[in-house]
Simulated assay, not measured.
Amino acid sequence: MSGLLPTTTDATTDRSGSPALLCLEDDRTDEILDALSSDTARAIFRALNERPRSAAALADHLEMSIQRVSYHLDTLTEIGLIEVADTCYSEKGREMDVYAVAEEPLVIFLGSENDQPGLRIALKNLAVAVGPVSILIAIWETLARFVGSDGAA
């Protein structure tokens, strides 16, 4: 019967939203820095940045116990850095949450709330300036790979 239940997920990581700016004075910044002070929590966050995964898949990928991974998943979910993106089922038919990084990207900056408006404008200007350049770099890298795999130089 487990063949009828989805054992894989089609959840993706979508970080297309505008980043939230958090300063050192923000209480949420303290929570985030506390949670990410753990090597395990950072490893889990990096793995979820690659692609969404269940707790069991994370434990296998990171070669850790499911209990250790689950503890950090709870903490990261509680502070809003990751979220449940989907549900799938184990081969035994048990329901499993699939975790992904939260849609809202965060920028933590070393400044006060008074610096936020200027920083927000600077980030928008940077995005406008870097946007066309990053497209050209992507095209260049694609062409370089194509030419390199073709054997021509």
Results as ranks from 00 to 15, higher is better:
E95M: 06
E95Q: 11
E95Y: 00
M96T: 02
M96Q: 13
D97L: 12
D97G: 09
V98R: 11
Y99E: 07
Y99F: 15
Y99D: 07
Y99Q: 09
A100I: 14
A100N: 10
V101T: 15
V101F: 09
V101R: 15
V101Y: 11
A102W: 03
A102R: 11
A102G: 09
E103K: 10
E103L: 06
E103D: 12
E104N: 09
E104R: 15
P105E: 04
P105A: 03
P105F: 04
L106S: 04
L106F: 04
V107T: 14
V107C: 03
I108Y: 03
I108C: 07
I108S: 00
I108V: 12
F109I: 14
L110R: 14
L110V: 14
L110N: 13
L110G: 12
L110W: 08
G111Q: 03
G111D: 01
G111E: 02
G111H: 01
S112Y: 01
S112L: 02
E113S: 11
E113Y: 08
E113A: 12
E113T: 15
E113F: 08
E113H: 10
D115Y: 12
D115R: 08
D115E: 10
D115A: 13
Q116K: 15
Q116S: 15
P117C: 12
P117G: 11
P117H: 12
P117S: 14
G118D: 13
G118A: 14
G118V: 13
G118S: 13
L119Q: 10
L119T: 13
L119P: 12
R120I: 09
I121Q: 15
A122P: 00
A122E: 11
A122D: 03
A122M: 10
A122S: 07
L123S: 05
L123Q: 04
K124Q: 09
K124A: 13
K124W: 06
N125Q: 06
N125C: 06
N125G: 07
L126A: 10
L126C: 07
L126R: 06
L126E: 04
A127K: 10
A127E: 10
A127Q: 13
A127G: 14
A127W: 07
V128L: 14
V128D: 15
A129T: 01
A129N: 03
A129E: 01
A129M: 01
A129R: 08
V130G: 06
V130R: 06
G131W: 08
G131H: 06
G131A: 08
P132N: 00
P132S: 00
V133S: 04
V133P: 05
V133G: 02
V133A: 06
V133I: 09
S134N: 01
S134H: 02
S134W: 00
I135L: 03
I135R: 09
I135V: 10
I135Q: 05
I135S: 04
I135K: 05
L136Y: 06
I137A: 05
I137E: 05
I137H: 02
A138L: 04
A138E: 08
A138I: 00
I139E: 09
I139V: 11
I139T: 07
I139L: 02
W140H: 03
W140A: 07
W140G: 00
E141A: 02
E141D: 05
E141Y: 01
E141H: 05
E141C: 03
E141T: 00
T142A: 04
L143T: 08
L143C: 13
